[in-house]
Write a protein that binds this DNA or RNA. Sequence first.
DNA 1: CCCCACCTTGAGATCGATTGCGATGGCCAA
DNA 2: TTGGCCATCGCAATCGATCTCAAGGTGGGG
Lengths: 335, 335
Amino acid sequence: MSDIARIAGVSASTVSRALAGSTLVAAAKRDEIRRLARERGYVINTTARNLRLQRTQSISVAIPLGHEAGQSLADPFLTEMIGHVADRITQRGYGMFLQKIVPPMDDWLPQLIGSHRSDGIIVIGQSTEHAVLEAAAEAYRPLVVWGGRLARQSYCTVGTDNVAGARSAVEHLIQAGRRRIVFLGDPAVPEIGLRYQGYLLAHERAAQQVVPAQVVPAHLTADTAYEAMRAFIGAAGGPGAAGAFDAVFGATDVIALSAVRAITAAGLSVPGDVAVVGYDDIVMASHANPPLSTVRQDVQRGAHMLVDLLFRRMEGEDTPSATMPADLVIRESSA
Amino acid sequence: MSDIARIAGVSASTVSRALAGSTLVAAAKRDEIRRLARERGYVINTTARNLRLQRTQSISVAIPLGHEAGQSLADPFLTEMIGHVADRITQRGYGMFLQKIVPPMDDWLPQLIGSHRSDGIIVIGQSTEHAVLEAAAEAYRPLVVWGGRLARQSYCTVGTDNVAGARSAVEHLIQAGRRRIVFLGDPAVPEIGLRYQGYLLAHERAAQQVVPAQVVPAHLTADTAYEAMRAFIGAAGGPGAAGAFDAVFGATDVIALSAVRAITAAGLSVPGDVAVVGYDDIVMASHANPPLSTVRQDVQRGAHMLVDLLFRRMEGEDTPSATMPADLVIRESSA
DNA sequence: CCCCACCTTGAGATCGATTGCGATGGCCAA
DNA sequence: TTGGCCATCGCAATCGATCTCAAGGTGGGG
């Protein structure tokens, strides 16, 4: 900037003001300086500007992958979410700083906050980090989390009604005549735990008709879910066997689609032998073969709410959590 | 930092050195200072650090969406690519700054470079920005682009062999007995243009057998591609009509899958009446109904190459462009 | 007992911008 | 001619870290 100032024969202060469009500098001189800066290809150094102004005009998006070291940001649900969040942030004129968090790392959030790298933080998925979020939210306001709404939670979340959504999915399976419905997923993950509650609720309501709930632990990646399902099928025996099952509720679409693969690979049919329902309604769900029944989360709307709530928080407002409806979408995999 | 220094009874210099793990400060004092900083929740201010060190420990990923204002970062191919790139960057200990570029904006790249926000830049897709990239590459080294390899191009690209890949796809259609193969896509986009060349090459080779090449312009989003295909079907008439066609080569999988939807919606069957082949092999392609034949780009490998080449460039090396093979994957949509 | 190394530490410059406050000069009215 | 106001502009402090250079303290050897 001082170079431009020297060339223009003014001080750096004036250049700064001219480029900022301040009326404190004469219009003619302002235009002259701007022209000069453009010609010389001068661009304000963002780092220095951020330091001086104490704001960065950018948002951090952190994605904790605690339950699955192998889970990649390339996961279909995450990428959809990231894409929509990025769209919205860009639309607001902010930049987006993307960060993958791979625990064990106990102080990633204080680090991220303290580094002052961004003006606000969006965390996608609670993963194992509920306590960390809880602790940070006390002192740091501009923080919004995509995930399940837990009891006594002080941070601001956006998400769908996991309990109701899962419950409607399982009730749909029961109404369709299914009697042994397996829950495929890891209830230790907060969101999954809520979906499991919904699954249990549906079972309680129909206790006379269905066999007791049964969980098959499965992580969030396609490969591990496939393997979990494959192993379970092997242990359960074929249709009609003692441990037989006639439906699977996958905690996510990725898990459910993996289950479909494992089931068909075992020579069973979907939905003939086993009905399958997932959760998320990722783009792939409707394109799958057979098309996957699932509980739809409106990711785009969720992403917009995340960003919009964050901006309100950055302006000092203390926004409450938001829960969106989760709508059952019935397709062929459970027809 | 000066607060910590005061509490510890030392100077800021010493705190800085202690936190950096410098051996210049006595071991006992170093541990003491570190403990104090942790207790107080002190975190080094990244902005100030970046300014002083003249590096940011982060990479910009820019995505120009020139040909389609409505195209979102949520596009399946882009999200897969972003996810893998993010994984690799994170693995290197760097942060990732994601930026969506919506032309017309002539100086986004000089701006991005000049802002010194990142230590290197990855551009995903040339879109309409070939000239901009060309101009910037002269003076700025740490820049790598995902896209097509064009003649007389001075910037470093990573991509698949679009011409050969497209050609193998079209030759496959011809061998399968298809005679009127429509190219669905916009050849003005550099990568798509190369695929169109491959399409033409295959037609030249089999000029006696097939009818001349025919382009149906289609943008890169699912909706516009669907609409383009629908309109074309309406104009072409049914099977056996004068303008009838028996195959579609979609410039991307998103386009091809939209074509499948439009074709089946018109009462035609895939592959019975019309065979369809795409390009990319996005995750959805194999899950589609029918599973989509396509030209596979190894996105993960491509993402890793992008990042790895960029780091070599950041160290001053002048890396050449890299072209990966594009492998035809035959599935039911063209069987 | 002195001096010289060496080990530690601190003062201050620096990175590149922004901005409060004071200074300058021009112009108009008294 | 001079005082006063206003439109402009520049000086210098500031943001929070890093690093050079030099000084302080300690210990060992002569």
